[in-house]
């Protein structure tokens, strides 16, 4: 799995890894991920103290719907105003 992840990250980072280099890096990064493996167990403040999610207030503002409609349809999925 780490190998696959490295391959993907290297591609995004525009780094081509030579054969031996890729294997070596996989071993090293696996060690690093094992090492930082207790980070996901760290409970954040938000998880400890439940916070009521804010309700969507976007419709309160005039013109918001109109602006929203101006965005290309696909972007609407992840573009919040």
């Amino acid at each position: 799995m780490v190998k696959e992840m490295i391959k993907r990250a290297a591609k995004i980072a525009r780094i081509k890894l030579a054969d031996g280099e890729s294997e070596r890096l996989a071993v090293e990064l696996e060690t690093i991920f094992d090492w930082i493996g207790d980070l996901p167990r760290f409970e954040t403040k938000l998880e400890k103290e439940y916070v009521e999610p804010r309700k969507d207030e976007s419709t309160q503002y005039a013109g918001v719907e109109e602006i929203k409609s101006m965005f290309p349809k696909r972007r609407g999925d992840y573009c919040r105003i």
Binding site: A13, P40, K45
Partner: peptide, 29 residues
Amino acid sequence: KRRIILGTAISTRELRDKYYSRALSIFSK
């Protein structure tokens, strides 16, 4: 290369919350 690839991997959607957000919380604490 090690740091760039590690950083790029941690920035991905799958790992961001698992590692990066936790790391920021540790600094805050």
